[in-house]
Design a protein around this nucleic acid. Structure first.
Lengths: 150, 150
DNA sequence: TATTGTTATACTCTATAACTATA
DNA sequence: TATAGTTATAGAGTATAACAATA
């Protein structure tokens, strides 16, 4: 009989496996897991520094450093907010968008052997079950759209 | 209709959520995600430095540092291998085992709101589906037993 | 006064390269 | 020579505290 503990074990193991794959793929593009997430978040919209820090659960000073390094690489840009002089808006450059697209492709390709094993019905069931987990996760807030590079 | 891409999105989002929870819980005990994994791996058996590094996908020099810091905190110990003078065996101290137990409890408690939403049949289905993903994950090798703290 | 962001500082995590000791 | 592990070094990621600018 499957218990709640079994699900926790499977979730944790899957988390480390997927995180490992993401770390490896990110590394192939000189991106840390966190930089990968930043790119994923900014892929379809701009955001403020504090907003990004809140999404990622990081201090704003940490966020400043992450943005600095990504900006130095030409992946994103800082802009002023005309309505509030304190705010800094962060958004992707074309090079950043291009890199995000490539990383996203690599992620799907890396997970294909696993997801390709599931038939359409299983795919639907897995997504539904993961959505339940996500909906009741410790922080079912903050992170808006697709997390990584999607 | 659910596609392979939808599953990848859900897996990635779940990965970041669970990893976030593990990072937070680890942090409450002054443990990084990596230290958390080390404790989880050594919970039920000892291992060599290189073996641990391979499991975690880290360089052996990185592993040396991780062991140093955990050992300095009294969580684990280094021992010699009588059959091969080059080998260093790493194993948990009672304090390390006790901490691993507490962290494990916290993890299950943190995920309970999510897993508690699933009925027995759903629990079984989710575990089965995650096992399929794990079996065909990019590195369905190395990591032996339960990954984190189980 | 409160909020937004940056900077200074310190520590952990990480890899590369060079090294020691053992095989 | 090859393998196991450590150390030195450098850079990224992280938080805390102090700060500047704006509200």
């Amino acid at each position: 009989m499957t218990t709640s503990d079994d699900v926790v074990d499977a979730l944790v193991r899957t988390t480390f496996e997927v995180a490992g794959a993401l770390t490896r793929i990110g590394g192939e593009h000189d991106l840390s897991l966190t930089q990968l997430r930043v790119l994923g978040i900014l892929r379809d919209r701009r955001a403020r520094v504090t907003e990004l820090a809140a999404y990622l659960g990081l201090d704003k000073s940490t966020m400043s450093g992450l943005i600095d390094r990504a900006q130095r690489r030409g992946l994103l840009t800082r802009g002023k907010n005309p309505d509030d002089g304190r705010v800094v808006e962060v958004y992707m450059t074309p090079a950043g968008l291009e890199l995000a697209r490539r990383v996203d492709d690599d992620i799907r390709r890396a997970l294909a052997p696993a997801t390709g094993r599931l038939d359409p019905e299983q795919l639907g069931r897995l997504v539904d079950l993961l959505e339940v987990v996500l909906a009741h996760s410790p922080r079912a807030h903050a992170v808006p759209g697709p997390a990584a590079a999607s």
